[in-house]
Nucleic acid binder design. Structure first.
Lengths: 167, 167
DNA sequence: ACAATATTGTTATGCAGCATAGCAGTCAAT
DNA sequence: ATTGACTGCTATGCTGCATAACAATATTGT
């Protein structure tokens, strides 16, 4: 750290492309760094993609869960999506107000409200999924179909332990 | 959505493992979903790994940037790490207070403060990197070395466009 | 030469996401 | 019958991150 670092003022070129590559030598060796950058980048696009239908990624995850698994409780969905029970309340209220699902008391256990999608909810879930898929096609345009599948597989392996622990 | 959905009460088994798999049929086809889950899972571990040395992932990224590219300005680092100039102020103040880097006014441009790591800063960056690498070995234990490299490559391709846009 | 525009480091401020703590009602176990 | 666990929910606080604005300085266009 002498030859390269001891140049306080000798740096003619503007801090553009060239500089941006070197710094990633250390950070870019970390999978977690790329994981974070890619995830944030993807999330920004997903939020934008769902904005026209007044939904967010978390909104879509919850509705999709209800559609895919009718009859689950809010606590179930919280466990599946790794969100807190306190934070799903508002999300469900909003979805319910839009008529996208209904609650039915469980006759056998009065604590539970089982959630069932309405036809409108199923349609909305389908539409939202479509929007997100379009976004994914954009963001994954540099990957082949095989690479996309491989990426999905590897990512699933990364957080597989989370499921094993308490999922 | 009839055969399977029209069973409001007939669900004897507890909402455990079996249920958790089906719901992911739709969500799990989305790369972005796994991206998000994996990133959050990884970040939690990274935060925990850096806690003993009183650092956070963003802290480490900033210090590492200074070490890797001595003489850069805070605005440079913000562009590289995609953070806002307003938000790096506190991070730099903390690192400076710990004596991990120093600022030197640029003689040619009085607006700029060029940042240089101290020997302590270099040592800290090395130590923090080591801790994060240990964490990564844990979280990526299910992947072979080749798979880890492939995952890193694919992730880099995902957010490559972000760099291309305004990098 | 000068006016318009841009950049730097910084402060102040607001908001959304997420977590914790606590509640009453209900169920299960011993 | 008591203890513990679970549900849905309210209240609340912290943190991360974004925007807006600032004075000082530099760059550009004409």
């Amino acid at each position: 750290m002498d030859e390269t670092t001891s140049r306080p003022d000798a740096m003619p070129e503007p801090e553009t492309a060239a500089a941006l590559k070197d710094i990633r030598q250390t950070l870019s060796q970390l999978v977690g760094y790329h994981l974070r950058r890619a995830s944030v980048y993807d999330m920004n696009g997903a939020v934008a993609a769902l904005e026209p239908v007044d939904a967010r990624p978390i909104t879509m995850s919850v509705l999709t869960s209800i559609v895919e698994q009718p009859g689950r409780t809010s606590a179930d969905i919280c466990r599946m999506l790794a969100i807190k029970r306190a934070n799903i309340v508002g999300l469900l209220q909003a979805l319910e107000a839009r008529g996208l699902f209904t609650r039915r008391d469980d006759p056998a256990d009065q604590r539970l409200q089982r959630l069932y999608p309405t036809p409108e909810g199923v349609a909305a879930a389908r539409q939202w999924l479509h929007l997100v898929q379009e976004h994914e096609n954009r963001i994954l345009s540099r990957l082949s179909l095989a690479e996309r599948a491989e990426l999905r597989r590897l990512l699933a392996l990364v957080w597989a332990d989370e499921r094993a622990e308490e999922g």
